[in-house]
Design a protein around this nucleic acid. Structure first.
Lengths: 116, 116
DNA sequence: CCGCATACCTTGTAGTTCTAGGTATATTAT
DNA sequence: ATAATATACCTAGAACTACAAGGTATGCGG
């Protein structure tokens, strides 16, 4: 990533699952799509992505199938399973909580004006 | 943390520096204050905080001094240095970029409606 | 034919957090 | 008095995550 890599930890899985929400994709494509959607902020490395995909597949969060590209090359597509969709829901909920927490701290304290 | 610990990676330093922006604090107090400001979302562990403080002090981002509490106990207060303020500015800027990137991906693609 | 983009993969390293301890003092409950 | 709890600091080792850097292979353009 172009950012502090620490920031990515914990959100990579959510980002990958989110991509697959809009349709099956193969690994290389996910890297490009993630870059495109984030305005080039996220440049995920292959060494980051592939292990994530393998772990998610082992855990039955994704399934995969091979398909020949128009060019003739083989591509390995990944598909969200039901379990994967559930995981994504959880991850998004955690992100919301985390995000709100950070914003609260940055703004000097939760509910600073909530009771006014 | 009560959240996926991966999510915290990379933002803990920013959160600690942010706390010190509003005044000198000692470690134990930071943990309580972080919890309070985040509505109990962030429960930083001592094993997380103290190494961060030591690393920041080694890097001259913080200075420290001891002071006796009204109770008689000694407390080690930390203070932001100029270098620390600069680091905080950087960290906040990175957080903004990261945060925007995640939201863009979650919403299905950057600038999806920007050109309409 | 050679270089580049595509497409997949793995190993080892570095960074971060947490667990699980340890030490010590002050307050509160028994 | 004494035991338990809260305060307050610290560290070593385990677990997880991302990356760097390597490898393999195919298709296309010059």
């Amino acid at each position: 990533m172009k950012l502090d890599k620490g920031l990515m930890a914990g959100s990579s899985t959510m980002l990958v699952l989110t991509l697959l929400e809009s349709g099956d994709m193969y690994g290389y494509q996910m890297i490009e799509e993630l870059s495109r959607r984030s305005n080039q902020v996220f440049q995920m490395q292959e060494g980051t992505l592939y292990p994530i995909l393998h772990t998610l597949e082992k855990g039955k969060y994704l399934s995969s199938y091979e398909q020949q590209a128009p060019t003739g090359r083989m591509r390995k597509y990944y598909k969200l399973t039901r379990k994967g969709r559930e995981l994504l829901t959880e991850k998004k909920s955690e992100w919301e909580k985390f995000h709100r927490g950070v914003e609260d701290v940055l703004s000097g304290g939760a509910n600073a004006l909530s009771f006014s």
